[in-house]
Amino acid sequence: MDDQGRTAGGADRRILERIGEMVDEERRLRAALAEGRIDPETEQRELKGIEEQLDQCWDLLRQRRARVEAGEDPDRASVRSVAEVERYES
């Protein structure tokens, strides 16, 4: 494996770890709502922020993987704004 592949793998793992953390936070929020520890408005507000960040992480991961497949430097991929990512998602 070349240096680019090792770098890409480590960064990709960190992005995937962050995605896992956010998924866990989504579960905690849903449980907190079910247990009455937070109100629905709080849950929705916080979920919206997490979902936006998740979309950005998935977008960044797709960018990185596409760059690797094209023989380009995955570290040149960058986090796009929520508005830009949401436009691509629809």
Results as ranks from 00 to 15, higher is better:
1 M>L: 08
1 M>H: 09
3 D>I: 11
3 D>G: 09
3 D>H: 11
3 D>P: 02
4 Q>L: 05
4 Q>T: 07
6 R>Y: 10
6 R>D: 07
8 A>Y: 05
8 A>E: 02
9 G>M: 13
9 G>E: 15
9 G>L: 14
9 G>F: 09
10 G>K: 10
10 G>E: 06
10 G>S: 05
10 G>D: 11
11 A>T: 05
12 D>H: 03
14 R>C: 02
15 I>W: 01
15 I>C: 06
17 E>H: 08
18 R>H: 12
18 R>I: 10
18 R>S: 11
19 I>D: 08
20 G>L: 05
21 E>W: 11
21 E>F: 10
22 M>R: 03
22 M>K: 04
22 M>P: 00
23 V>W: 04
23 V>L: 10
24 D>S: 12
24 D>W: 08
25 E>K: 03
26 E>G: 04
28 R>M: 04
28 R>K: 13
29 L>M: 04
29 L>K: 03
31 A>W: 02
31 A>D: 06
32 A>N: 06
32 A>K: 08
33 L>R: 12
34 A>D: 13
34 A>R: 09
35 E>G: 08
35 E>S: 11
36 G>L: 06
36 G>K: 05
36 G>T: 13
37 R>S: 07
38 I>T: 12
38 I>D: 12
39 D>Y: 15
40 P>D: 15
40 P>H: 07
41 E>Q: 14
41 E>N: 12
42 T>V: 15
43 E>L: 15
43 E>C: 15
44 Q>L: 14
44 Q>A: 15
45 R>F: 14
45 R>V: 10
45 R>L: 15
46 E>W: 15
47 L>G: 09
47 L>W: 10
47 L>T: 12
47 L>F: 09
48 K>Y: 03
48 K>N: 09
49 G>T: 09
49 G>N: 11
50 I>R: 02
52 E>S: 13
53 Q>E: 14
53 Q>A: 10
53 Q>L: 05
54 L>E: 06
54 L>I: 07
54 L>R: 01
55 D>Y: 02
56 Q>K: 08
56 Q>I: 12
56 Q>G: 06
57 C>F: 13
57 C>G: 03
58 W>E: 12
59 D>H: 01
59 D>V: 04
59 D>L: 02
59 D>E: 09
59 D>W: 00
60 L>N: 00
60 L>Y: 01
60 L>S: 01
61 L>V: 05
61 L>G: 01
61 L>Y: 02
64 R>Q: 05
65 R>V: 03
65 R>W: 00
66 A>F: 01
66 A>T: 02
67 R>D: 00
68 V>H: 01
69 E>K: 06
70 A>L: 13
70 A>T: 03
71 G>N: 09
72 E>N: 10
73 D>Y: 08
73 D>H: 05
73 D>M: 11
74 P>V: 08
74 P>M: 09
74 P>F: 07
75 D>M: 12
75 D>C: 01
75 D>F: 07
77 A>C: 04
77 A>D: 00
78 S>C: 05
78 S>Y: 06
78 S>H: 07
78 S>Q: 05
78 S>P: 00
79 V>L: 09
80 R>L: 13
80 R>M: 08
83 A>M: 04
83 A>S: 11
83 A>K: 09
84 E>S: 08
85 V>L: 02
86 E>S: 05
86 E>K: 13
87 R>W: 06
88 Y>M: 14
88 Y>I: 10
89 E>N: 04
89 E>A: 06
90 S>T: 14
90 S>K: 15
